[in-house]
Computed example of a mutant assay.
Amino acid sequence: MARIHVCSESDLPDGEAIKIDSPLSPIAVIRSGGDLYAVTDRCSHGNASMSEGYIEDDGTVECPLHAARFCLKTGAALCQPATDPLSTYPVVVEEGAIYVELPETV
């Protein structure tokens, strides 16, 4: 897998997100409940940045434009108007740094 450096672990507090560029597409890296998640930054329903969405305590993120919600763990669309899931990516923390792992085909 290819790795992309996101930021220092201390630079991403709980309930916050950061947008990073990748060879695939922009990715939102989100800390929720102490866990780290990486999902496609663009909502599957419209052109909205998920890193600007509302991070909920139940492990979901809500699109800032149309209120579609997605599971951070699986990327599944949980309500209308979205029906398609977000892509998810593994997140690794090494020596205090956060990385997102991308498929080798990138």
Results as ranks from 00 to 15, higher is better:
19 K>L: 02
21 D>Y: 01
15 G>D: 01
97 A>E: 12
64 P>D: 09
12 L>N: 07
93 V>P: 00
79 C>R: 09
20 I>A: 01
94 E>Q: 03
104 E>Y: 04
15 G>N: 04
32 S>T: 09
106 V>K: 02
22 S>G: 07
35 D>A: 10
69 R>Q: 15
87 S>D: 14
27 I>E: 01
84 D>R: 12
93 V>E: 04
71 C>W: 12
102 L>A: 07
75 G>P: 10
98 I>T: 04
37 Y>I: 07
99 Y>H: 01
73 K>D: 14
93 V>L: 04
95 E>S: 06
8 S>A: 08
41 D>W: 10
66 H>A: 08
87 S>Q: 14
6 V>T: 02
8 S>M: 06
53 G>Y: 13
70 F>A: 06
46 G>Y: 12
60 T>K: 05
8 S>H: 09
35 D>N: 10
100 V>K: 05
49 S>H: 14
74 T>N: 01
72 L>A: 14
52 E>G: 11
90 P>Y: 02
6 V>M: 02
71 C>V: 12
53 G>V: 13
17 A>V: 06
102 L>V: 07
48 A>R: 12
43 C>K: 09
67 A>H: 13
31 R>G: 00
101 E>F: 07
9 E>G: 01
34 G>H: 02
15 G>P: 03
43 C>Q: 12
92 V>F: 00
41 D>C: 10
53 G>H: 10
70 F>R: 07
97 A>V: 05
2 A>D: 03
11 D>C: 03
79 C>T: 05
40 T>R: 12
86 L>T: 10
45 H>E: 05
10 S>L: 05
